[in-house]
Amino acid sequence: MSEVAPMTEASPEPTQEEEEATKRGLGIAAWLAIGWLGCMVFLAVSASFLPLDDPINGSIRETPGVSYFTEGHIFGNDLLGRDTLARVVVGTSTSLSIAALSIGFGTLIGGFVGLVAGYVGGRIGTALSAMFDILLAFPPLLLALTLVSVLSPVTETDPPSRIKRMLVVALAVGLVSIPILARITRANALSWSQREFVMAAKSQGAKPFRIMLREVLPNVVPAMLSVALLGLASVIIVEGGLALFGLSINPPDPSWGNMVASQVDDLGETPHVWIVPSVFIFLSVMSLNLLGDVVRDKFAVREAAI
């Protein structure tokens, strides 16, 4: 070993900015959002273990349509005597599963395609991004509607099971979210691919696939995460939209969207039946949007046209 000049300088102090970023923390709103979403996840996971009334078969012989804080029904019951609390909790599980499945699917496919388009670039990249643009030109709800109809045609006598229907809805919405996620991933992958460390990795003989996954992808993840959180929020809303067309999961299984949709023809009769899930939707969507923004700010994710 040759003589090497030892390092003389000390390791750098964190810059002022870095320090501020650490101190700033997440803020109360973000913690509230995390708390709310945590509750939702808890409800979704434990829905079948909680001591709830039967969400499907109501007590039709009891007084139906009673309002909040009626004996045994915190959120009242609906016209078929079903406990609103039980339905909204089971609906949480359905709605969140659909949201998570579809965005998981969309992120996986959209992220991969976007990464390839952004890193490989050239004609392939151009062709892929042209494809995203075409897909983005369709109104998402319309596309989802069409996809659900195509994926789950009602020709057979036997209706699809709850799980199958959920997968179909998640797949349809996931397909719709692909171009959105692909586009933002591509934009970020493109900018990160031109960074010197990518070339440095290349000059060390790393293969393109490896560079994509090890060098580019980890840098793109924050942007994807931010968009995925916003995407989850959108899916919750799109599920509600599908439900209005009777294309979410099949009755009598509840989802937030189904519960609201079941009352759209008469909002005044038993308002708690749609207000409760609407509040759940509202708070969850707001929380997700907020967290999406927090992630974006934290990681200084570059804005890309969505």
Partner: peptide, 23 residues
């Protein structure tokens, strides 16, 4: 609503109804 009501009623008699909504 009609379908869900029918399903619940039939259950009382031990009849199973599968619901197949059509858009």
């Amino acid at each position: 609503r009609t379908a869900e009501f029918l399903q619940t009623l039939m259950k009382e008699a031990g009849i199973t109804v599968n619901l197949n909504p059509v858009g």
